[in-house]
Design a protein around this nucleic acid. Structure first.
Length: 874
RNA sequence: GGGAGCAUAGCUCAGCUGGUUCAGAGCAUCUGCCUUACAAGCAGAGGGUCAGGGGUUCGAAUCCCUUUGCUCCCACCA
């Protein structure tokens, strides 16, 4: 086959992906082999691929493809998440564009629109993953809200309810006034905001005295039902036990209560208490039996409870109240103030603490086995530093608010009865049966299902089980075979949302961990260190990058810059490097492909030597890569292979065995070289699937294996011979020294030279042919005498001379030699200092001391050689 | 307020149980090459007080303390 001189990914990637699908190489069914399974962190069904997905899925694909090549039954389950709030918000926005108000629709109508939207946009993201080369088992694609998953969720809800872990009640929750739903604590993000601290005057009833109260939220005075001071505060000791104050503007009379909760140091030491709109105030309200006045509508506007500012948005109201208080002389002063305000993770609006009726899941018992599993490394976290974070959260876990006031999601399977009370069941039919046990006269029409849906994470926490339908059918062969899964690759930002809860669910419904290892990736940042975001516009479209540099190039960029738990500073230059590497691989193959075999010619000595060496290099590198991968040092593993291919194979091996232009190559060398290419491609394939497949298919080393996807990973049958590697390194040094000399003395590479050496044990005689070829020498000769007319250098302890035509610059040579000598002597001195230290010799391990003695011997030999050369020259 | 982590070449980072693979890699820079696989390349070179200070040790980039600077997580005194 004629190959183009540049690798062009666009023409081959689709071809091979289609081929893999056609051959069904990514599909897995339970069989006798060892399973290797990853469940994908399901992206939002209507989402688009971003750089974070790229990183995450590249890593997963590397793990998958490697396991597959190890002969395991590899199964990567893809899917999407219905993402209740995010998707509902998108659908609402889209309807609004069309002039449709959500409020004007029935639940059924809205859901029809939502499903339509899902059918249209859902799955785009999964197609994008194919472009990356993701080897998912697409036949297994799941959706958190499809039939099987939904049935599982309902079953779990009923199960937890019957176990008494799910309860319903009025609690202070995080209210999102934009999405008009409650949120879990995890969905609230606290950010420092520049606000103001307002000092308001509360007039003491029956007196002209004012009590000044500091607050950041003056609009909540509408809901004030008490004022609170610390009982030990001298400033307020004069107040009567039953003293009352008048809420400014509102005119309501409220009691003054005394509680040590109030910080004397803060503000004026007086606190206004609004039980409906502040968590701490709520607790005070409970304690002292205060009235709770909810002043907000669900959308954050003021309701008509008080009759003031009705319908005004909370932030407008704050401004108006500030003005009105000032006008009424009730505003003492206003100070700038920085405090933390909670915002909704999804809609970005400020959260309103709100009392409301919600469903909760009691977490304490669920957390126990899950905490233990991680702390005892039954499930191991990579990097381990996240164990602490995890433990802290788990040990202080709060009940999970699982109800959402949305329509897009799994509807809570609770059915209310006409005369009060409710039943919980997986279906309306079962609910009716339960209801009829209470009251035989009830009919379906009497049941009213709860309006709320469940938190999205209430379905994703079952993911490793539910993708195999293991909730509904806990003994089915699939779940028995694939569960527990092996690795989970995800970001640390969802450690609480998802990872922790999956672990809890795993133990609750399988009595077993859901996965063995969790690999936490970092966040992808731009080269300035900023998080990539739509708002900043600093996030490149990954598909553009793939189009420009190829999927393999893109994958390399991700791999080069990542290590577990560390953020990725993304720079497009990395993609370029990735693309260049593809091209390097391509051209190395092109070279080999051009060679013409002549089985009658003898194998050159240099080629024999190169093969002897490269066999060991392969062994060593295979082992190192395996070792790195075991520890999830994926970036390091890849870098090893990058250097192996580029430096060792292309830079050294190929240059050594390369026949002269248009000369044929001997059969044995060609066969060996092709074997190396085959091995290298296999090693690289998990990282760079497309380019390796393209070349492998051309090479066809195994007639009965249709794709490199299912070819076996190379193994080192024994440990590498360290001595051969070390000896070759000496030869490399000699070659480099000669090249250096050419450069310094302006001798063209083409000009052939002679090398003389004074033989000793550090002369790599077994690689003499390599040296001859790579340094372009006409002869290599042993000698016993120093040649003053030659350029000289020393490698380890061996002296080398390159006779020069014409004179050499004696002074320059001498200067260099003297500098070397000085360095060597300094080095020897530091070694001797250690060795003459009795305590060192006594306390250091024998190996270390031996090493120092070897250093001493080497340094002494080198010094002797240097001195000899200096003498010969001067 | 509590906790965790980071600081090594211009940039991004390795450096695993303290000791010859200890000061490294890639990118960038500089020099010389369009040498018939690859200029998306080849051959070379320069560049670091391992954040500052102290300690432990025969020996510290590595362990301990401390200062400074940055990042993240948790908590939320209005």
């Amino acid at each position: 086959m004629q190959l183009a001189d540049k690798y062009s990914p666009e023409s081959i990637e689709q071809k091979w992906y289609d081929f893999w699908i056609e051959k069904n190489l990514f599909h897995s069914e339970p069989d006798g082999r060892e399973p290797y399974c990853i469940v994908i962190p399901p992206p939002n069904v209507t989402g688009m691929l971003h750089m974070g997905h790229m990183l995450n899925n590249t890593l997963q694909d590397v793990l998958m493809r490697r396991a597959r090549m190890q002969g395991k039954n590899a199964c990567w389950v893809p899917g999407t998440d219905h993402a209740s709030i995010a998707t509902e918000a998108k659908v609402v926005a889209k309807l609004k564009e069309e002039g449709i108000d959500k409020a004007s629709l029935t639940r059924e109508e809205f859901l029809r629109h939502a499903w339509e939207w899902k059918e249209k946009h859902g799955g785009i993201i999964l197609n994008q993953l194919r472009k990356l080369g993701a080897s998912c088992d697409w036949e297994r694609t799941c959706f958190t809200m499809d039939e099987a998953r939904t049935a599982g969720v309902l079953k779990v809800f009923v199960d937890l309810y019957r176990k008494g872990l799910i309860y319903r009640g009025v609690r202070m929750v995080n209210w999102d006034p934009s999405a008009k739903t409650a949120l879990s604590d995890e969905e609230v993000i606290y950010k420092e905001s520049n606000g103001k601290l307002y000092y308001l005057r509360y007039k003491l009833e029956g007196s002209e005295e004012y009590i000044v109260v500091a607050t950041t939220r003056p609009e909540t005075i509408l809901g004030d039902t008490a004022l609170c001071v610390n009982p030990n505060d001298e400033r307020y000791k004069h107040l009567k036990e039953d003293a009352r104050v008048i809420v400014p503007l509102v005119g309501r009379s409220i009691p003054i209560i005394r509680d040590e909760y109030v910080d004397v140091e803060f503000g004026t030491g007086a606190l206004k208490v609004t039980p409906a709109h502040d968590v701490n105030d709520y607790m005070l309200g409970e304690k002292y039996g205060l009235e709770s006045i909810d002043i907000f509508n669900d959308d954050g506007t003021i309701n008509d409870k008080v009759g003031l500012y009705v319908g005004v948005d909370r932030f407008d109201c704050r401004k108006q109240i500030e003005a009105d208080l000032t006008a009424a002389g009730l505003m003492e002063r206003v100070e700038p103030y920085t405090n933390n305000v909670g915002y909704s993770e999804r809609t970005g609006v400020a959260i309103e603490p709100k009392l409301s009726m919600q469903w909760f899941l009691s977490m304490e018992e669920l957390a126990k086995p899950a905490t233990k599993a991680v702390m005892e490394d039954v499930i191991s976290f990579v990097p381990a530093k996240y164990k602490n974070t995890y433990r802290h959260w788990m040990e202080n876990i709060k009940d999970w608010c699982i109800s959402r006031q949305l329509w897009w999601g799994q509807r809570i399977p609770a059915y209310y009865l006409p005369k009060g009370g409710y039943v919980v069941a997986e279906s309306a039919e079962e609910a009716l049966k339960l209801a009829q046990e209470k009251d035989a006269s009830l009919t379906m029409a009497d049941l009213r299902q709860d309006e709320d849906v469940l938190d999205t994470w209430f379905s994703s926490w079952l993911w490793p089980i539910s993708v195999f339908d293991g909730i509904r059918y806990p003994n089915n062969p699939e779940i028995e075979y694939y569960y527990p899964t092996n690795d989970l690759v995800t970001g640390p930002d969802i450690i609480f949302f998802w990872v922790a809860r999956m672990i809890m669910a795993g133990y609750e419904w399988r009595g077993e961990r859901p996965f063995k290892n969790v690999y936490f990736t970092g966040i992808v940042r731009d080269k300035l260190g900023r998080k990539m975001s739509k708002q900043l516009g600093n996030s490149p479209d990954p598909l553009d990058l793939i189009a420009k540099y190829g999927a393999d190039g893109m994958r390399v960029a991700m791999l080069m810059s990542t290590s577990a738990g560390n953020d990725v500073m993304f720079d497009e230059a990395l993609c370029e490097q990735g693309r260049n590497f593809c091209n390097k691989i391509w051209n190395a193959y092109r070279l080999i492909n051009m060679w013409e075999e002549d089985s009658t010619i003898a194998q050159p000595e240099a080629a024999k030597q190169a093969i002897a060496w490269f066999d060991e290099v392969m062994r060593e590198r295979i082992e190192r890569v395996a070792h790195d991968m075991e520890q999830y040092r994926i970036s390091e593993a890849f870098t090893e292979l990058y250097r192996l291919f580029w430096d060792d194979f292309s830079g050294w091996y190929l240059e050594i065995v390369k026949p002269a232009y248009q000369s044929p190559i001997d059969g044995e060398t060609l066969a060996c070289t092709k074997h190396y290419v085959d091995q290298l491609l296999r090693l690289l394939h998990p990282f760079m699937p497309f380019v390796t497949e393209e070349i492998w298919q051309d090479l066809k080393p195994e007639a009965d294996v249709c794709s490199i996807v299912i070819a076996r990973e190379p193994k080192a049958e024994r440990k590498a011979d360290e001595k051969i590697l070390a000896r070759f390194a000496l030869a490399e040094e000699v070659i480099t020294a000669i090249r250096n000399m050419r450069k310094q003395k302006n001798i063209a590479q083409k000009e052939v030279l002679t090398l003389r050496y004074i033989a000793d044990e550090n002369y790599p005689a077994e690689f003499e042919a390599v040296i001859t070829k790579m340094a372009n020498l006409k002869a290599v000769e042993p000698t016993t005498e120093k040649d003053p007319a030659a350029a000289a250098f020393i490698v380890k302890t061996t002296q080398y001379f390159v006779p020069m035509e014409g004179s050499i610059d004696k002074e320059a040579e001498l200067e260099k030699l003297r500098a070397d000598l000085e360095y060597a002597e300094g080095f020897l001195a530091s070694v001797m200092k250690k060795l003459s230290n009795e305590r060192f010799v006594q306390s250091a391990p024998e190996k270390v001391v031996m090493n120092e003695r070897a250093k001493q011997a080497d340094a002494e030999a080198k010094i002797a050689a240097l001195k000899a050369q200096i003498e010969a020259l001067s």
